[in-house]
Write a protein that binds this DNA or RNA. Structure first.
Lengths: 175, 175
DNA sequence: CAGCGGTTTCGGAAAGTATCGAAAGTCATG
DNA sequence: CATGACTTTCGATACTTTCCGAAACCGCTG
């Protein structure tokens, strides 16, 4: 069950989507399994259990468990408890805007802020130097830092906004 | 030469910057060496030869060559020929805004557009289906596709704009 | 057309990650 | 407090990516 070319067009499309999304994920620095689980939950209309995820993707329990937990850690997936069931179920946040904001926030925290810290520290370490080389170095890093800082603020501002306020503005600006 | 803790604060800062930037690069899906070479060229006030890059980073010729070529392919680094020298030199684009636009364009081409294509194809494959499940699937993918498409357009629009037009607008909006 | 400075390619080694599968842990319940 | 249902952890393994070093290549010049 749920193999390739099942004959059911919907099932086929799901499979294709989930697998290809997993493949694409790797180029964004997300592990294949994690991307696949996320895709799977995204297009599932009901919450899935660890076992269902395992079955659907052919992944091991450990792998499924780890990646589900990580997705919960990113805030992209919620644990849901089903009345009368002991087993835990998982569902993905479905709203695309919310997903975007969550990812933006997390990447900001995990990747942009460390970069900023690095830049600041390198700048601090060369603050007093007066040689031409030092000045050039300082200037380049300053520009970089300023840009990253701006990007950071933009992401922060955007992801703190209401979708209904931002999207229309963007669409208008695009035109 | 050019080891850790050389005693020269500028050299130390450069080393720190280059190495740490390399480390950070991996979490953005860029290989360590490539990120390091880019960082190195970014803060170098003169173009560097393959051999200088090798020496500075302790990388092999093959590795240096491959990554330099790749950086040229991304449009982040230019080959420069020095009058009377046979050897090729490399210099990085220094302007941060230009760098941003280049990266945005490339990632768009390499990563966003394939994702869009995937989404479109999955949508096409389920167009006629009328079951509730199919509709839900279709709706979810449509929302995702729309969002990605918008993001794509935004990147395109921004990276085609003049820095002088965009940055002030952004700064004003941020306030 | 041989020698030389320089670049590119390539097979194999090494490093780094993701994944598995089994064992250990947790927790409500009878 | 023992049991069974489920979750988490963890060492070993498989796979992917990166990197090295040497060999092949290229084009100029004498």
């Amino acid at each position: 069950m749920s193999d390739d070319a099942s004959g059911d067009p919907l099932e086929d499309a799901r499979q294709t989507f989930v697998r290809s999304w997993g493949a694409l994920g790797t180029s964004w620095g997300v592990s294949r399994t994690m991307a696949m689980i996320h895709a799977l939950l995204l297009v599932s209309d009901v919450p899935l259990s660890t076992d269902e995820v395992m079955a659907e993707l052919g992944a091991s329990r450990g792998n499924a468990n780890t990646n589900l937990r990580e997705l919960v850690g990113w805030g992209l997936v919620r644990r849901v408890i089903v009345e009368g069931e002991r087993r835990e179920y998982f569902e993905a946040e479905k709203d695309v805007w919310t997903i975007f904001c969550t990812i933006a926030r997390e990447r900001k925290r995990r990747e942009i802020e460390p970069a900023l810290a690095l830049l600041e520290s390198c700048l601090a370490g060369t603050k007093g130097l007066r040689s031409a080389k030092a000045k050039a170095f300082h200037k380049q890093l300053t520009e970089l830092a300023q840009f990253v800082q701006t990007a950071n603020s933009v992401l922060e501002r955007i992801s703190a906004s209401e979708q209904s306020k931002v999207i229309p503005a963007i669409l208008k600006w695009l035109k």
